[in-house]
Design a protein around this nucleic acid. Structure first.
Ligand SMILES: [Mn+2]
Ligand SMILES: [Mn+2]
Ligand SMILES: [Zn+2]
Ligand SMILES: [Zn+2]
Lengths: 152, 152
DNA sequence: ATTGAAAATGAAAGTCGTTTTCAATTGGCG
DNA sequence: CGCCAATTGAAAACGACTTTCATTTTCAAT
């Protein structure tokens, strides 16, 4: 890790090491604030912007990539050898991963047809996970309109 | 159109009619500001928030849905009978649509396997469209890192 | 036509995650 | 060591989205 940083011309600092460690110890799909909280448990002096900057750096190094599910909060997902898709539960906001190997062929071909050169894939299925469906059985119609109540 | 509004309990106003008309006359994937500009060509007195609110209303009526590609700008896409995917060009920021019929089966099955109940699909392929690739042939390496220049 | 309650409007302000600024500190090579 | 560029942290800036509120308008019921 230090090696990778050095060879790319970045310095190793205590904050950076801590942030990197925390990031990789936390699960996938971490938000800046989640990581910030985790880091501050171990060193409350670390600043928010430092966490943010190092998260960006982690992405720059190719160790993670941003995931944007449309709720305005960027999540950082450890890079996986092959692209994967996400099930996003509208209720608990959790992301489940699934293999997209079976659909990549068709997508690449569709791109080819219109001479589009793909370099990134975002396959996200929204809905409700089994946990949440069980929990809210009686009124899953209500939970279904998560953010549609304007003038209720 | 007026009928639909009335039956749902919404009022018809000159601004609303203008905004609806402009929205449907513009192409797909419209941003609030794009629609705002278009509307103001015809009536400069219409406010930004009115455009925004009516765009939300159009979604509420099921005539459009929000598309969030991760650049922080919400686009509004006219509802299509069946879900479609998007090619998003990192260079010109345009969205090309493509049919996802051939991959829906696999996705639905993948969801089934983990007891996830899907109700929304977002299939977005990022990359470079044929126009942009031709235009920037000599230095497509540079354009390739659209937003990766932090300390260039 | 008149009227009044509810909805809609527009300007301005508020929200909130992201990003930048800047002075002070620090890492690491020579 | 000693220097210089990289890094840090606090605070401010940014920007799209959303809400607030006083005023205006719609429209159903007189
Ligand atoms: Mn993931
Ligand atoms: Mn579309
Ligand atoms: Zn859930
Ligand atoms: Zn393009």
């Amino acid at each position: 890790m230090k090696e990778l940083l050095r060879t790319k011309g970045f310095k190793t600092t205590p904050q950076r090491e801590l942030i990197f460690d925390c990031f990789f110890s936390l699960g996938k799909h971490v938000t800046v604030d989640e990581l910030y909280q985790k880091v501050r448990e171990l060193d409350p002096s670390v600043g928010h912007s430092t966490v943010w900057r190092n998260l960006k750096l982690i992405c720059q190094l190719g160790l993670a990539e941003e995931v944007n599910i449309g709720d305005g909060i960027t999540r950082y997902d450890r890079t996986t050898p092959k692209p994967h898709g996400h099930f996003f539960c509208r209720s608990c906001k959790k992301l489940l991963e699934f293999d997209v190997g079976s659909v990549m062929g068709a997508l690449v071909e569709a791109a080819h047809e219109v001479k589009f050169e793909p370099d990134g894939y975002k396959i996200e299925i929204q809905g409700y996970c089994s946990d949440c469906r069980q929990a809210s059985r009686p009124n899953d119609a209500a939970t279904g309109s998560a953010n549609d109540e304007r003038k209720a």
